[in-house]
Amino acid sequence: MEIYNNHKRLFIVATVMFLALTLYAALIPAYRAQEDNAPLPNSKPLTEQELAGKAVYVKEGCIACHTQQVRNVDMDKVWGERPSIASDYARNKRTDFWRNTANLLGSERTGPDLTEIGKRQPSKEWNLIHLFNPRSVVGQSVMPAYPWLFEIKESAAAADVIVQVPEEYRKGITGDIVATEDALNLVAYLQSLKQVSLPDGRPVPKFLYPKEATPALAGMPAAESGGLDGASLYAANCQSCHQANGEGLPGAFPSLKGSSIVLDPDPTALITVIMKGYNGRAKEGFPEMPAIGTNNNLKPEEISAIISHERTSWGNDAKKVSVEEVKAILDQIGK
């Protein structure tokens, strides 16, 4: 055939075909996605500090292990209230002359998705300890440690943010571990990562492939509290601060083992702390606890499973709390 004997014709035809398909599958959709999506009315642009934090996030290559996208599939419900939509990324513009836009959707989820990390883990203290060495708060983590985001000072100045790293991770450090500007900016950026609610009237995209209600697996303890597994709910919601052994971290997060609030026969205080947060032990140096129950949309069944687990583990022996009791208390405290 003639075309295979004429290099000009052959390569021009191939290139035109490739360009046409590129237009169809990349350039036009990309341009439309850029032009047709406005930021959501409830969203705010990043502050200067948060932008600086995002630069640290990009610099350290966090995208290698963390995604920032809630897919419209049921399994992604744990990462956000609704699937991410194009408008969520509409505020992202070219970083500067040298660097491209950073949407940071990511393609690997070796670590958790961070779309809503600002809501799920808002504690600045926890984030700083975790950055200094992730294994000091999450024993099984494989995340890198970022000690270069911190400096060691013999005696910290009043304005310095001191990080309460547990003893075994200090490794011969005698002075105070102080967060650098970079660390504080990065944490501010992480705290800013929250999903924005859609304006009224706009249909919320559905999560596909809903999980079928599976009957309890053989061999699993048919727990009370609606059959939910308190231990794994505790692991997902509480463990990163209060630890698997319930003892917390000295100087950073209080122990639940033997805690008077946890063991109180009347669980009202405990449920209030979970739903509204708590700042009662600031004098002892403990940071404020976020309103984890509200942030993570815990249902009465889940709260019942979690607190029953807390009240009966690690040597605690208070009685379990039923779903009905939890519901009554939630009504009472107005949540």
Binding site: A30, Q34, A90, R94, T101
Partner: peptide, 12 residues
Amino acid sequence: PFWQNGLGETIA
């Protein structure tokens, strides 16, 4: 850079 703002970056 002409199609890289917002979600355009991800498609590219």
